[in-house]
Amino acid sequence: MAYRSRSEHRPWGEQLFGGLTLAAALAILVLAVLLGYILADAAQPAMHKFGWRFLVTSRWDPVHEVFGALPVIYGTIVSSFLALLLALPLSLGIAIYLAELAPLWLRVPLSFLVELLAAIPSVVYGLWGLFVLVPWVRDSVEPFLARYLGFLPFFRGPFYGVGMLAAGFILAIMILPTISSISREVLLAVPNSQREALLALGATRWETIRLAVLPYGRQGILGAVILGLGRALGETMAVTMVIGNRAEISVSLFAFGQTMASLIVNEFSEAFSAIHTAVLLEVGLILFLITLTLNILARLLVWRVAKGMEGASGQ
């Protein structure tokens, strides 16, 4: 929205102001480039020394300078997908209820409450996780799962409470508002004609949602899920406080684990050597690149849906 009169010359204050805003915008681009460059540069010694082997070996011994990132990559992926598995059906349910079904007077306060979950600091989640969630997982959830689903290898081993399962639970709670609020916006953007067409054919409300509303918003919901996944992969404090922080690969969800982010929290300030620091920075770089890719993908998906929204917005 620029209203420039080209015939007259523009006063210097005018140019200065426009220039300042442009400089600030460029500063953000510089920041993004610098972020990637500095991390890559600082991780250089580690990449040089260990190469690709780093990603596929699992021995982690800072004292002897042997480093393999496989267990933390495994821990990050398993905890995040566990979280997604738990959060996705709940988030979709919430989004559908808040966008399609809830009485109007209830929508605003309920959305506010769900979004409040996103406002609680990660470290407070960790505190609650450590003193409320972990004992509950240890005393109720794990014995229950071991008794009824113990024939599966995922639910075996001693009950610590702390571990992969608790991390999955806390991550699920934390990504729930992300996925549900974006999905809700996506559902609200679905044009009413979609719904009316199915209702006119005699479909029930659920059939309308399943056949007309959800498929229409598929891309946007996928974007929301990827954003949630990105958040889970990089979530740091709460996970560090409940996952047990031991870099092992274990099929059982009751076992301790370690994620890329929690590894950095635990070892960065007490790194043994320059190469140890560089290795941790490389872990950070990998995490940065993964979350960057996921976010780019998700934003493109959500933006495409939002663009279609401008024309057909009924809300």
Partner: peptide, 10 residues
């Protein structure tokens, strides 16, 4: 938008 999704520990 992408930067807001980068983990704060990074």
């Amino acid at each position: 938008d992408v930067l807001t999704g980068i983990p704060s520990i990074i």
